[in-house]
Write a protein that binds this DNA or RNA. Structure first.
Lengths: 155, 155
DNA sequence: TATTGTTATACTCTATAACTATA
DNA sequence: TATAGTTATAGAGTATAACAATA
């Protein structure tokens, strides 16, 4: 008979990930709240900025946000003149998204706040460990897309 | 003037953590569903088993689960005879938690399923990277408790 | 018929606070 | 008065699916 290995929550990747995601989310939500946006709106803005002119659906997929949740986020960002929906002449179903000048300004400041918050949250790890952690997380996220267990809605 | 560094979501620790937590949760939820329990119930059982006899509150804190959400989880586990609440004679406010034989059996099987799922989810990383990742996550979680930005409710 | 964006709905999760029974 | 456990409730997040406009 093989001995049963005692497993604790500290060996559970999901438990650790969920807990840290919540902690990071709580801290960073406060960071972006200063600029009047939610964390999801920040994510959408970041993704729009990285490649402007894409459809809502394309941005939603890239940001792992559900398309029905995109609507609310984009509505609010547009109402605040941080982002514009521009109907695409070649395909009038599509609304191409891009940030306004004000949107870019706000995103830039929010981004600084988020980076500062993350630096603090990750400070306990030595720099090389920090880089390795992010690299591992990126690899896992990329792998999820390949293997198909990626979930659409997020954050 | 310093140049603005373009940040993408792949550089965002919170976005990566939240996304992976969701993916892992989705896969592992299916794994434990075979045994008729939710992921939170699995977490509670794991924490109870690691140190039986503690109060609900002590287990809730250790598992980073809100005490009001503990009630539902413990109710269901008790109804299925996987866990028992035993009033403590020395302090009759407290209910000491412990698993039943059936509970230990179910947990053991659920645990194997979870470990198998995590092995698959982490397979893309080389073994040393896997160990380093878990270690980094553990350090961050421990640091959260120390620095006080830890959030109670989780999973 | 399929796709983009929108709306609607039900469900779960989360945060909060009130309440009880004990201490 | 303070704590352990319970209950209640409002809000946010999530998963689905239906729908209109367009392709």
């Amino acid at each position: 008979m093989s001995e049963t290995v005692e497993m604790t929550l500290n060996d559970d990747a999901h438990w650790l990930l969920a807990r840290l995601a919540r902690n990071f989310g709580s801290v960073e939500q406060q960071a972006v709240a200063e600029f009047g946006i939610s964390l999801r709106e920040y994510v959408v803005m970041t993704e729009v900025q990285s490649a402007p002119g894409r459809s809502q659906l394309a941005v939603a997929r890239a940001a792992a946000v559900d398309k029905s949740m995109m609507v609310t986020a984009v509505d609010r960002l547009e109402a605040r003149d941080l982002l514009v929906r521009k109907p695409l002449p070649s395909d009038r179903r599509v609304r191409a998204l891009s940030l306004t000048d004000e949107g870019r300004r706000v995103l830039s400041e929010a981004n600084s706040a988020v980076r500062a918050a993350e630096m603090q949250l990750l400070a306990v790890l030595p720099p090389s460990r920090r880089a390795e952690l992010l690299d591992s997380l990126r690899r896992l996220a990329a792998d999820a897309v390949n293997t198909g267990y990626d979930v659409e809605a997020c954050i």
